Simulated scan of single mutants.
Amino acid sequence: MSIDHDSRLRRLRFRAWHRGFREADLILGPFADVHGPHLSPEQLDTLERLLEESDREIYAWIVGQEPTPETFETDVMALIRAFRFEAHAARPTGDGA
């Protein structure tokens, strides 16, 4: 049975937001919301495989605490890393300035 793109994306977005490790949720959830609709079917495959891994490992790979296994050193991982910095730069600092 084949799943349509929108259903697949909804499922991936849910999985990205509900990792169980808040730091991973706060990167992967917004990434899936912003970039998910623009990912190719192959990139969605890559994201699905990535989401099968441990939250703490994924987070460590994204922030550079641990080397990323070659299997996951993909264009999707590069997009996630770039998104992390873009999202952080766009976040209000709360300093009232």
Rank of each mutant, 00 (worst) to 15 (best):
M1E: 13
M1W: 08
S2V: 09
I3K: 12
I3Y: 10
I3V: 13
D4C: 05
H5C: 08
H5W: 07
S7R: 09
S7M: 12
S7I: 00
R8L: 09
L9S: 00
L9G: 00
L9E: 00
L12Q: 05
L12G: 04
R13E: 06
F14L: 08
F14C: 02
R15K: 15
A16M: 07
A16Q: 03
A16G: 06
R19K: 15
G20Y: 12
G20T: 04
F21E: 00
R22C: 07
E23W: 14
E23K: 15
E23Q: 15
A24H: 14
A24D: 01
A24V: 12
A24G: 12
D25M: 05
D25E: 15
D25Y: 04
D25L: 05
I27V: 15
I27A: 10
G29I: 10
G29P: 12
G29Y: 02
P30Q: 03
P30F: 04
P30R: 02
F31D: 01
D33Y: 12
V34S: 08
V34H: 07
V34L: 14
H35Y: 14
H35A: 10
H35W: 10
H35L: 11
H35E: 11
G36M: 04
P37A: 07
P37N: 07
P37H: 01
H38E: 14
H38W: 15
L39M: 13
S40A: 11
P41N: 12
Q43H: 12
Q43E: 15
Q43T: 04
D45Y: 08
D45E: 11
L47R: 03
R49G: 02
L50A: 04
L51G: 03
E52F: 04
E53N: 08
D55C: 13
R56K: 13
A60C: 09
I62C: 10
V63F: 05
Q65P: 02
Q65G: 13
E66W: 10
P67G: 10
T68A: 10
T68M: 07
T68R: 03
T68W: 07
P69C: 05
P69T: 07
E70W: 08
T71K: 15
T71W: 11
F72H: 15
F72N: 01
E73W: 15
E73F: 06
E73K: 15
T74I: 09
T74L: 06
D75W: 11
D75L: 11
V76M: 09
V76R: 00
L79G: 04
L79M: 14
L79N: 01
L79Q: 14
I80N: 01
I80K: 01
R81F: 07
A82W: 02
F83G: 13
F83H: 15
R84A: 05
E86R: 13
E86P: 02
A87H: 13
H88V: 08
H88C: 03
A89C: 08
A89P: 00
A90M: 07
A90C: 14
R91M: 13
P92V: 10
P92N: 02
T93Q: 11
T93A: 14
G94N: 04
G96R: 03
G96W: 05
A97Y: 05
A97E: 10
A97C: 07
A97N: 09
A97F: 13
